[in-house]
Write a protein that binds this DNA or RNA. Structure first.
Length: 853
RNA sequence: GCCGGAGUGGCGAAAUUGGUAUACGCACCAGACUCAAAAUCUGGCGAGGUCACACUCAUGUCGGUUCGAGUCCGACCUCCGGCACCA
């Protein structure tokens, strides 16, 4: 330890030492309780940004905390290294995607090491290496075996700017998730993964993670799966054997159905219209709707349009004939692609009915809570159809509904569904918004789909023993949207595994979200050559105890990885339903956009980025990390302020200087010291020490890192005010200082590990480095509640709820004593004088409130 | 439009089950050291009021419950985020 604190020196020294001693490498054979601390793996864009720094600083703090508590902590990192930017660089600048990626990884690995994040580097993985993507292909084949992977011609979301297919998740809102270009629809033959088979579980199993995941993430997941309970109802076509099936969640409104509306792309349309005079008109309309859908940007701002087909359908409940319409507002891909139109009780149907003068018939009347309670089975409502100027969409009581009139919606829905089932014209049904996951990409830089096409044998999966299907070294990057692999004959042309005749490989690659769906299982057993991982090893660390990342992955990655885990469970690889017990979504790091008052996420295009390397050079990794964690609660937005980071350096320097002052005196242990007779001040410092240990330990469990750091600062402030001289002090005072200082240093380690190690060593702990603590046992201090207990309490005294005085009392003062002490108080007496004391509220150990009149 | 979340000093923020509002830090002000500055150290710092106390007012607004409300309830305002024809 030098006299002055030079962050760069200290940090370089410890980073080297950690690397030499492989300080953070762990083994599954170490039988201490295991803890899996995981941060979302980065895309190797080339440069770490402040969002990464925040993400990894949070994770590292937790990893250190658990490590110091004696856990066997798995804390790995890797690279989500397949994907578009590498290929864009190839197209634009002619570089090889693999070289580009490897260079970026090398640079970013250096940055992470300069930040001093305590990763087990022996477990580093990268998605673009064949020892990894081999297992992507293996999983794909397993899904294929179980018909969970399948191929179909489909209208896909196509980004015209990036020339690629996007999944539903990636084209949410009709725009490309990466470049915000409006997506188009194209017909292509694509591979899909049957995530819809797991839709129910993806909703139901939320129960298992509810307590550990942020509510907003769960909500988005529920919305994404979009589970909806209702019924299918068949409307028979008049003078025909055909029937149209609709889906509704409001069977109770069926007597108000004044039309049946089909999507313009409904598959039955052609058959229904074959004898119709309107056939060509309707086909023209359907074509128009289709092209509208193909080019639309924003959904929802489209005007509703429709056409009456002239066909009549029969309402199975009322027997009434209603017209069949075709319209642009009915989605073909949801439910049955057809709806019953109930203008009085659905906003969209109302708008449509108004435009085309369809009848609006009220069949649900509002009820008051009191009415509903008093006679839940027969209530009379009033028909106000004529006056309706908007749809009434709430539950209520049925009117104009034949025998069902007088029933409340909540009772009518199950009863009417049962009736439909009994009479064979319908059934209860659950629909989901989630669609199967399209994984084909017409891209080079991804894992090749392990499938071969043979003229004789058709589609043949690549045999497991032939994996991996290696990505060729390079290809022609045209950027046209054709699969680049199709232009590599030595890749495409192959032999049929079945008949050994000439055959061709699938030239698409997989969505990179496949790579990230299971990567954290691979960390447990990263060099396994015979399987994706050993289940025995994986079960020792998983499910992940704490996952940390941005909430931009609230639906895509986190839905896919939950799906993948359930699949792995079904093929016997893991034995649980959910991969992640606790999830933390950290807030964004923002900076002022120059010349404005706006705070926005740091980005190159806005020019408001801050380079982590510059911060490390100027202030040190410890101060940078400390500031990032101190400045705001982890889930809040973090506004970057350079003056704040200077405050962090100041704090670290003060701690360092104080230790330097005491170093010599503390370097020799004072042996057993009798602490019974120590000064009031020394007792207060001990108390603060133990209160701080309790506070920081509890805060860590909630990841309230900002308040932990504040508590450490408070302890430091009290420690530096402690009037004891390093040379003259009694052994007892020295022992108290030692306890405070050593606790402080250990608890500082998760936030500023380099300086903590340096100080720890300076305190003559050469034999027990903090980073070596897994080998020497837990180091985290334990709070003694007896020592943390206050010796005296300051009790506020209120008169009529307003603070008027304070009493200093012993902690075990009785209620009666408190009451009389409060009433005897000079200032209280002055206020009470001339008034009647109505009552005295005494909250033991907290306060007294004297109520006067 | 619908669904969430949040409004506390100049700023980032604290505040067990309702119980001393503003911890900790930043910025700012004053002082010490210095020829001077930086750094460092000491003190101050919600608003009004006072020589100083006292006192009054303050957690988006208005109302309610309570001995007591940042915290609970009702209505409203503002900001942020998500979804957006899902029947």
């Amino acid at each position: 330890m030098d006299e002055k604190y030079f962050p760069e020196q200290v940090e370089t020294k410890w980073q080297q030492r950690w690397a030499e001693m492989k300080a953070f490498e762990v083994s599954p054979d170490d039988t201490r309780e295991k803890f899996y601390c995981l941060e979302m793996l980065p895309y190797p864009s080339g440069f770490l940004h402040m969002g990464h720094v925040r993400n990894y600083s949070i994770g590292d703090a937790l990893a250190w905390f658990k490590r110091l508590q004696g856990f066997n902590v798995l804390h790995p990192i890797g690279w989500d290294s397949f994907g578009q930017p590498a290929e864009q660089a190839a197209i634009k600048r002619g570089v090889n995607p693999r070289d580009w990626t490897e260079e970026n990884i090398a640079h970013m690995r250096g940055q992470l090491q300069r930040l001093g994040i305590s990763y087990d580097w022996s477990r580093e993985i990268a998605a673009h290496r064949s020892d990894y993507y081999k297992w992507d292909q293996w999983f794909f084949l397993k899904m294929l075996e179980r018909s969970l992977a399948y191929k179909k011609v489909s209208q896909v979301n196509w980004c015209p700017k990036e020339h690629t297919v996007l999944s539903n998740e990636q084209s949410s809102g009709g725009i490309c998730w990466r470049c915000s270009t409006p997506v188009e629809k194209r017909d292509l033959e694509q591979w899909f993964l049957r995530i819809t088979d797991y839709a129910e579980q993806l909703v139901a199993d939320i129960d298992q993670i509810e307590s550990g995941w942020p509510e907003k993430v769960l909500k988005r997941q529920r919305d994404w799966v979009g589970r909806s309970e209702g019924a299918f109802i068949d409307f028979a076509i008049k003078d025909s054997d055909n029937k149209i099936r609709v889906f509704t969640t409001r069977i109770d409104t069926i007597f108000g159905a004044t039309a049946v509306v089909l999507s313009a792309e409904h598959p039955m349309l052609e058959d229904l219209l074959k004898d119709s005079a309107l056939k060509s008109d309707i086909e023209a309309f359907a074509a128009k709707v289709k092209s509208q859908r193909a080019t639309r940007g924003e959904l929802g701002d489209e005007v509703k349009e429709g056409l009456n087909t002239g066909i009549l359908a029969i309402n199975p409940f009322s027997g009434e004939s209603v017209p069949v319409w075709v319209a642009n507002y009915v989605l073909v891909e949801y439910g049955t692609g057809a709806v019953m139109s109930v203008p009085a009780h659905d906003e969209r149907d109302f708008e449509f009915a108004q435009k085309y003068s369809l009848p609006i018939r009220q069949v649900i009347a509002p009820v008051t809570h009191a009415q509903a309670k008093a006679e839940p089975t027969s209530i009379t409502g009033t028909d106000q159809s004529a006056e309706m100027n908007r749809a009434f969409i709430d539950y209520g009581v049925l009117i104009n509904s034949g025998d069902w009139g007088g029933k409340l919606s909540e009772f009518a829905i199950p009863a009417m569904t049962a009736f439909a089932e009994k009479d064979g014209f319908g059934e209860g049904a659950i629909t989901y918004r989630i669609r199967d996951w399209g994984v084909s990409r017409q891209r080079f830089w991804g894992a090749p789909v392990p499938v071969i096409y043979c003229e004789k044998c058709g589609m043949v999966p690549v045999p497991y023993e032939q994996l991996p299907v290696l990505l060729p070294a390079t290809a022609a990057f045209t950027g046209t949207g054709e699969s680049p692999l199709a232009g590599v004959p030595e890749f495409v042309n192959t032999e049929c595994p079945n008949c050994h005749g000439a055959a061709r490989r699938d030239t698409d690659t997989m969505d990179t979200f496949v790579d990230s769906s299971w990567y954290f299982f691979r960390y447990c057993d990263p060099r396994n050559e015979d399987s994706a991982f050993s289940s025995d090893i994986v079960k020792q660390w998983t499910p992940v105890h704490q996952y940390i990342g941005g909430d931009s992955h609230a639906v895509m990655h986190l839905i896919y990885t939950r799906f993948w885990t359930k699949f792995m469970r079904d093929i016997g690889l893991v034995s649980f339903d959910e991969p992640v017990k606790k999830l933390l979504t950290q807030g964004m790091v923002t900076n002022r956009v120059e010349g404005t008052d706006e705070w926005k996420a740091m980005s190159k295009s806005l020019g408001n980025g801050v380079d982590p390397d510059e911060m490390i050079a100027a202030f040190g990794a410890d101060a940078t990390r400390l500031f990032v964690l101190f400045a705001a609660p982890v889930e809040n937005e973090l506004r970057w302020l350079e003056s704040g980071i200077e405050g962090a350096v100041r704090f670290l320097r003060r701690v360092y200087t104080l230790v330097w002052k005491w170093q010599e005196r503390l370097s020799n242990p004072e042996g057993t010291v009798d602490l019974s007779g120590i000064s009031t001040e020394a007792r207060a410092l001990r108390r603060k020490t133990h209160q701080t240990i309790a506070k920081v330990t509890a805060d860590f469990e909630q990841l309230h890192l900002n308040t932990s750091i504040a508590a450490l600062m408070e302890l430091f402030n009290q420690l530096s005010e402690f009037k004891a001289d390093p040379v003259e002090s009694s052994p007892a005072d020295v022992a108290v200082v030692r306890e405070a200082l050593e606790s402080l240093v250990v608890m500082l380690t998760p936030f500023a590990p380099h300086i903590a190690e340096e100080i720890w060593e300076g305190l003559n702990h050469s034999g027990g480095l903090l980073s070596g603590s897994p080998k020497v046992g837990p180091r985290w201090p334990a709070a003694d509640p007896e020592l943390a207990r206050s010796e005296e309490l300051e009790i506020p005294v209120q008169v009529n709820g307003k603070l008027r005085s304070r009493l200093i009392t012993s902690p075990d003062v009785s209620e009666d004593e408190l009451r009389s002490a409060a009433l005897a108080d000079e200032r209280v007496q002055a206020l009470v004088d001339g008034h009647e004391v109505v009552k005295v509220v005494v909250v033991p150990k907290r306060l007294v409130n004297v109520v006067i009149r």
